[in-house]
């Protein structure tokens, strides 16, 4: 019993001295419960390279995007490695909510108008009830308005649709990965084309080199092909962030900047030097 008493006295003293150390900060830390927090900035921009990333802008943000793709580099010095030819896409996008994002654009390549909607179905989070991935649904419609007098086509005939499920995970602050199951549908195809529908699986990711610069990769593998000439689109790029701008530089074999185009109409061979240099510049405005 005496032994117990001594032990008890000792314990109580130990308890007192712990409190006496008065780590108020430790007490506060214990208070801070593991509440749910969304993982931000899986990617720097709304585009991975050619295609979309899971990211949307926050509510009330307007994004003005100018994208350029120069000609292929294999033209040599005569074509100044492709700089003589450039196609441009001008786009204006707006976030109606933190989850719903839409935009319109026009690509000078085949004089294509496009519109898209994007909705964040799932957002990666940490803490209580955490989810390890983000999922964004993406749908785009593109209308080719290049004059083709040999065909008699109306606006519906000229339209193509792309639907994607963008699935991404910010593995850590340096590495983010994304998978993009995609479906491209055309209402009407030319005689030389063989498939109205093309299914593809895109994959990509980024590695942050420092807080403001990241290297990105993107590849779309097609399971059907529109015709015998198409190749899978590969792109390698850099994201550079400067205040309100996100500047993306890329090297890709895709010519089009519209989803149905780069996924299923890419005809250049990346490893044969048929590479386009290009860039995307994004400027955001907090509208309300």
């Amino acid at each position: 019993m005496t032994k117990h008493l001594i032990l008890l006295c000792f314990l109580s003293l130990a308890g007192r001295s712990l409190i006496a150390q008065d780590d108020l900060l430790a007490a506060l830390e214990a208070e801070q419960s593991e509440h749910k927090e969304y993982v931000e900035a899986t990617f720097k921009g709304t585009r991975l390279i050619n295609g979309h990333s899971i990211e949307t802008r926050k509510k009330g943000v307007m994004d003005f995007i100018i994208a350029h793709r120069f000609g292929t580099a294999d033209g040599g010095i005569y074509e100044l490695f492709g700089l003589d030819n450039a196609s441009i896409r001008i786009g204006l996008e707006y976030a109606l909510t933190d989850r719903f994002y839409f935009g319109l654009g026009r690509n000078s390549f085949e004089k294509t108008y496009d519109g898209f909607v994007k909705y964040r179905l799932l957002r990666q989070s940490t803490g209580n009830g955490s989810i390890p991935i983000s999922v964004t649904w993406f749908s785009s419609m593109a209308i080719r308005t290049l004059k083709e007098p040999e065909y008699d086509l109306n606006i519906v005939d000229r339209s193509a649709y792309t639907h994607q499920l963008l699935i991404a995970s910010k593995v850590n602050s340096v590495i983010s990965l994304q998978l993009m199951p995609s479906w491209v549908h055309r209402n009407v195809i030319r005689p030389e084309d063989s498939n109205n529908d093309v299914f593809a699986l895109g994959m990509g990711g980024r590695i942050k080199l420092n807080p403001r610069v990241a290297i990105c990769m993107e590849y779309y593998h097609q399971y059907q092909s529109l015709n015998d000439l198409t190749k899978n689109a590969l792109a390698i790029g850099f994201d550079i962030e400067t205040g309100g701008h996100v500047f993306q530089l890329q090297f890709t074999n895709a010519t089009s900047m519209v989803p149905k185009g780069f996924i299923s109409e890419t005809s250049n061979d990346f490893f044969d030097g048929e590479i386009h240099f290009g860039f995307n510049i994004s400027r955001t405005f907090q509208v309300n």
Binding site: D22, L24, L25, A27, L28, E29, Q32, E37, E40, A41, R57, K58, K59, G60, V61, S173, P211, R212, E241, G243, G244, T284, Q286
Partner: peptide, 28 residues
């Protein structure tokens, strides 16, 4: 004695992109 603890992500800006950059690039 006094103690204060705060979550950096708890800081909110008028400009949401600025908030993202504050977390990503500056305060990490």
């Amino acid at each position: 004695t006094l103690a204060v603890s705060m979550s950096i992500k708890g800081f909110h800006f008028d400009n949401s992109l600025m908030e993202e950059h504050f977390n990503e690039n500056y305060l990490e």
